[in-house]
Design a protein around this nucleic acid. Structure first.
Lengths: 241, 241
DNA sequence: ACGTATTTGTCCGTATGTATT
DNA sequence: AAATACATACGGACAAATACG
């Protein structure tokens, strides 16, 4: 049992995020670092850390000698691709009611492509899962997951189908910390058309993700196919120099 | 004339980036912050700033009490979508020789959708540009640009067609600092098939970008269609908590 | 064109907390 | 239990960019 109160900079971050979320106007000015430090009762350095973190996520831009400005726009930004969040959240952020239909789950030998990605031996097993995610009960995302097999996974999965995979993995002591993702545009296969109840071929955004623990162990590979009609990804891109 | 040597943290960043680029193994450990500080002759704080910056760009992950690890992998990561860089660079990073074919340039009234995005008045003009970018002389990217018109732009563009648009804009005192981008998957239109010399419809990654100056003024809107066969975008996604 | 006030950027030193081995 | 290494936090100082009178 530990209540580890959030670090000061986390608290500051959260307080500043509140200011941001309440803001309505693009490019309105945040209080100065000095002011924020006084308001929140922390050092300017701590405020700066919080601001930098929010800058990296595309909420803010700072201008030397001028101030820090809010570029967050709840209307436009639905999914910040740079932040790893659950697909459930992505569906909610797009304004839909999320749901899951599990269509397949099997313990099987890893295909060689996958075993290479997941750093497995030739004959190692994976838990293979096929799912369809729904938005307002319409099928919109088709997902194939490959998880290096740990004893008891198949049984455990049966009783926790609706849970997020991240939570599922955590039960086996594997916490996902980051993912390395590739974004592609593809056309739906027959199989996917079937699962997503499509009349004909449609363009899909394919997210190929290798998920790692903080230690760098690959613990989940997934191909996620998003109906491009209904989903978009956003990203704030910053110029380096 | 200014020689403003780079800030210490920039130099540190660049030194650490060298280490990263030379590294071949996923998740190998960076020297400790203490060591780096001594190696580079700067304070640990400065090293930390550099490391954080590289962490944000997906090169590194730090583990509390353990160390900082290199997740950059030149083989896998070709284009970090979170970093705003020129399309020329993107082509080079994919291993091709970059080129440009300008197919169209005109001063015209902004379409109402565009004038809204660019914050223009009803009858304001834009410089409209259509271009095709080539990789090893093959057409691979089709781009439509809309730039709020400033006197002399059309003439200036004629004499600097091959230059990057970012450079072009800088001549008019408009430095692009960040962009707000949306990623979609689309099918090629007849027009695009024609321009990219495609035999039939192909899936394209569409990047819709509003580019801003540091002040938050929109100075360029562009639709970029990437041949998905040849290009992919990468992103390191980190879980927040 | 210049100086001043404001604000962020950079840098240092130091101290203590926390996770891992 | 101890050692190591990173994380967090503070305070202070000066530099650099910008805005404004």
């Amino acid at each position: 049992m530990k209540l580890t109160r959030d670090s000061l900079y986390r608290q500051a971050r959260s307080a500043i995020l509140d200011i941001i979320k309440q803001n309505t106007e693009f490019m309105s000015k945040l209080p100065s670092e000095q002011e924020l430090a006084e308001m929140l009762g922390v050092s300017r350095n701590t405020v700066r850390e919080a601001i930098k973190s929010l800058e990296n996520e595309g909420y803010l831009v700072s201008r030397h000698g001028v101030g820090t400005f809010i570029i967050y726009d709840g209307k436009n930004i639905k999914t910040n691709i740079a932040v790893l969040e659950s697909i459930t959240n992505i569906i909610v952020n797009h304004g839909y009611k999320p749901g899951t239909k599990s269509i397949y789950c099997q313990k099987r030998q890893a295909p060689s492509v996958i075993s290479k990605i997941l750093n497995l031996e030739e004959n190692d097993d994976v838990l293979y899962i096929e799912r369809v995610r729904t938005a307002d009960d319409d099928p919109v995302i088709y997902i194939e997951d490959y998880i290096p097999y740990i004893d008891g996974m198949y049984e455990k999965y049966q009783e926790s189908k609706d849970e997020s995979l991240f939570n599922f993995l955590q039960n086996f002591g594997q916490r996902v910390a980051f993912s390395n993702s590739t974004i592609r545009a593809v056309l739906s296969s027959k199989h996917i058309q079937n699962e997503l109840s499509l009349d004909g071929p449609e363009t899909l955004l394919l997210l190929q993700q290798v998920h790692y623990t903080a230690k760098g162990d690959p613990v989940l590979y997934s191909d996620s196919y998003f109906l491009s009609k209904k989903f978009e990804f956003n990203v704030v891109r910053k110029r380096l120099d």
